[in-house]
């Protein structure tokens, strides 16, 4: 990726680096950061909730494709967020197709900088559909969060606690415990960076 904007040359971080390597013997060292726990449930009848705004949506492509290949009977629910609907809805055509074919039961979106719709982040969206989300969790769903570690992940965590509190009718402390237990049970998994 290499383009000019406002008279400045801009290149993609990874693609720019790779493109700059010279010579036939050019090598780059690649590391895989393992995340052993971030795996789909072995029990394919379990529902799966995926929260992946921005680049965090990346692993969920594979998740949804894998679930379909497995013939999983559990439902799939994706939450995606970005700044602009028209340019940043990553893999839009694939998600539309998945919804159309029923592979994705639900797809909730949040766009924060589109002029004509209310500014929303993925955690706002979660709260809006909190009742259904809580029902899925009660039903044994697995919940995955992928993406920004600094703001999104804590905000989503706070939203989950709010949702448990509101729809589970518990105190904030108990809701916090509940969410922690989900994590301990490996039903609330995160890949954040």
């Amino acid at each position: 990726m290499d383009y000019e904007l406002e008279r400045k040359r801009r290149t993609g971080a990874a693609s720019g680096f790779l493109a700059s390597l010279q010579g036939e013997q050019a090598r780059a060292r690649v590391f895989v950061e393992q995340n052993e726990r971030f795996r789909l449930p072995a029990d394919t009848s379990r529902d799966v909730i995926m929260i992946g705004p921005g680049t965090g949506v990346a692993p969920f492509r594979g998740f949804v494709q894998h679930r379909e290949a497995q013939g999983a009977t559990g439902r799939n629910w994706l939450f995606f967020g970005a700044r602009h609907f028209q340019s940043e809805f990553l893999y839009q055509a694939e998600w539309q197709d998945a919804v159309k074919r029923g592979v994705l039961s639900r797809c909730d979106l949040a766009f924060s900088r589109d002029r004509s719709i209310p500014r929303e982040y993925v955690q706002d969206r979660l709260r809006r559909v909190g009742k259904d989300l809580y029902a899925w969790l009660e039903n044994g769903a697995y919940l995955y969060v992928c993406g920004d570690a600094e703001q999104m992940a804590p905000d989503v965590n706070a939203a989950l606690i709010d949702i448990v509190m509101k729809h589970g009718g518990t105190s904030r402390d108990d809701a916090g415990d509940c969410v922690r237990r989900l994590a301990d049970d490996r039903r609330y998994l995160r890949d954040v960076y």
């Binding site: 809805f89 990553l90 893999y91 839009q92 055509a93 694939e94 539309q96």
Partner: peptide
């Protein structure tokens, strides 16, 4: 857009 897996504009 199709190459980017985005729907038409």
């Amino acid at each position: 857009r199709r190459r980017q897996k985005l729907e038409p504009a």
